[in-house]
Computed example of a mutant assay.
Amino acid sequence: MDNIYDFSVTTAAGGIQSLADYRGQVILIVNVASQCGFTAQYADLQRLYAQYREQGLLILGFPCDQFGGQEPGSNAEIAQFCQLNFGVEFPVFAKIEVRGPSAAPLFNYLTQQRRGFLGSRQIKWNFTKFVIDRKGRVVKRYAPYRKIADLQSDIEKLLLAP
């Protein structure tokens, strides 16, 4: 596979969403959790989305409970939490696994395309971020501790690219 457009994911409501529907947008994919030390990044993600969505930025959140049980809620509870606490307007999908034998195919692909710290393919914690260009290619991976502001210049460059 050369891009993310061959994948489909499950929405929080239980439907199927083809990533091909997002063709031509710059996408930031993040595995998220509502009880994590990095949960405050939701606010920064929403600000980034509000600032650049008209230019073609899309943020996709994928809740994951694999790291310390930090995402215990149902899909409906997660969506409500994101909206009430952070005003999240970008899509937050159904809870998934991002590593191990039950990892979602999308996240297997993302980790094959961009390695993390010390060359590791495995996602180590919540709020790992993947930047996707307008052609659906994974161009960058950011560790959970990296602030959303650290991604901004890379995203701006991609938004300006043809």
Rank of each mutant, 00 (worst) to 15 (best):
V131K: 06
G73F: 13
I155N: 04
R53L: 01
A94G: 05
N3A: 05
A94C: 07
N31P: 08
P144K: 09
Q51N: 04
L160G: 11
G61P: 10
G136K: 06
E54N: 03
G116P: 03
Y49F: 15
F81P: 04
I29Y: 03
L160F: 02
V32M: 02
S74N: 13
I155G: 01
D150V: 10
K135R: 14
A76E: 15
D21T: 15
F67A: 12
L48E: 01
D154G: 08
F130S: 09
D150N: 11
G119Q: 11
I4S: 06
G87E: 01
V30Q: 00
S74R: 08
R141A: 06
P105A: 11
F107N: 10
E97R: 15
I78G: 05
Q83P: 01
D44E: 15
A40K: 15
S8W: 07
R53E: 11
Q83Y: 15
P72L: 11
K124T: 08
L19N: 03
F38R: 04
F107L: 12
I4P: 03
L28D: 00
N75I: 10
E89Q: 12
F127I: 09
I96C: 11
T39D: 08
Q83W: 13
Q41K: 07
L158F: 09
L45C: 01
I123R: 09
A161G: 09
V92R: 04
R134I: 08
A149T: 15
F90Q: 00
A76H: 13
S18W: 05
